[in-house]
């Protein structure tokens, strides 16, 4: 595969090339590191928004309306819709596109569905790298939608510029369950289905919960620790509240930009990515090194062999064996083994 050529076609927004490049990332192709290196200089300009919330609150409908609103403002949009794979069979049904058809066939929009494929760490990496590929094709906004509030979602959202949490007046139980998780990293909350009964009580309750769940020691990204998280209402299936949501997001993001916090946040994200990269490489190597596996197996059960001591022994072997060549491949070699 000619990576340079592929990069060129991605930058020219050729949909099939973007799509096949994403599959390379998803399938852990040996060429994906080179590919990501190739597109790196085209990445960093777009704003990335995470959208999450419990099932059935209308996330995809919100995303659908956001796409349309952004297109009206002449912005190009990429969307990654993440859904869980079945833990029993490894398959998945990805149905978010059903709700994302408002704009029809449009070259300014690229939507990709992604299954979690059962791994949480790898998922956030694949998502971020997929976002890079889509962004390199000239998108102004990247929206990442996930269901639920598990650890992997939190990981994904550490990498975006703003997180929108979508709820509905029926989400009372869900809030209780997610207090400590996503509530802490949400930057904007939208209560969708605002025409449902119980809206006012829900919003009041939500604001009380937020006070408790976000103590002052957890500084809000958007400024001082006292900043109140915006709580908006919407009725996405009727297009109500979307312009306000977008305005709030844009204001929030430009505030982040001006204060230098966006740059800081992105540096943090990159640092985290680099760390993950190193760790992944080490882990892959460790898992595939048969000598070390054998050594560990042999040591277990021996008198006086504590886990710590066995680990030290293994590390010594690892470093002694000139692992440099394996861990830091020459240009030709990609990741994976």
């Amino acid at each position: 595969m000619d990576i340079n050529n592929l990069v060129k076609r991605i930058v020219a927004a050729d949909k099939l090339s973007i799509s096949r490049a994403i599959s390379m990332i998803e399938n852990n192709s040996p060429d994906s590191d080179n590919l990501l290196d190739g597109i790196h200089k085209y990445v960093g300009r777009a704003l990335r928004i995470g959208v999450t919330g419990p099932p059935g609150v209308g996330k995809s409908t919100i995303v659908n309306e956001l796409i349309a609103a952004l297109r009206k403002r002449d912005k190009r949009v990429g969307v990654i819709a993440v859904d869980p794979s079945s833990i029993f069979c490894g398959g998945a049904i990805l149905g978010d596109r059903i709700r994302m058809q408002k704009i029809g066939v449009d070259n300014g929009v690229f939507i990709r569905s992604m299954a979690t494929r059962g791994c949480s760490g790898g998922l956030s990496r694949a998502t971020v790298e997929t976002a890079d590929i889509i962004e390199a094709s000239g998108k102004d906004y990247i929206i990442i939608e996930t269901v639920g509030v598990g650890q992997s979602e939190v990981e994904i959202f550490r990498s975006v510029d703003a997180v929108v949490l979508v709820l509905s007046p029926e989400s009372g139980d869900a809030i209780q369950a997610m207090k400590a998780g996503i509530m802490e990293i949400a930057d904007v909350i939208v209560v969708n289905k605002a025409d449902r009964p119980g809206l006012d009580a829900f919003v009041t309750n939500l604001k009380n919960t937020l006070e408790l769940a976000r103590p002052q020691s957890v500084p809000h990204l958007c400024g001082s620790s006292k900043a109140k998280i915006p709580v908006l209402t919407a009725q996405a299936n009727a297009g109500i509240g979307i312009a306000e949501l977008l305005d709030t997001l844009e204001k929030y993001l430009s505030g982040l930009k001006e204060s230098g916090k966006l740059a800081q946040r992105r540096r943090d994200v990159l640092r985290e990515r680099i760390k993950t990269h190193i760790l992944t490489r080490l882990e892959e190597h460790l898992l595939s090194d048969k000598k070390i596996t054998k050594l560990v197996d042999n040591e277990i059960g021996k008198a006086g062999a504590t886990p710590g001591k066995i680990a030290q022994k293994a590390l010594r072997v690892l470093i002694n064996r000139k692992t440099r060549k394996v861990l830091i491949p020459s240009k030709k070699r990609g990741r994976g083994v």
């Binding site: 799509s19 994403i22 998945a92 990805l94 149905g95 059903i98 058809q101 029809g104 066939v105 299954a115």
Partner: peptide, 24 residues
């Protein structure tokens, strides 16, 4: 064990092929 992208109802040929391209 397959990943199924379900587009829902009332799709035009253009929408189907666009989805097929984007989803590889």
């Amino acid at each position: 064990g397959m990943e199924v992208i379900y587009t829902g109802l009332h799709q035009t040929p253009e929408m189907i092929v666009q989805a097929a391209v984007e989803e590889d």
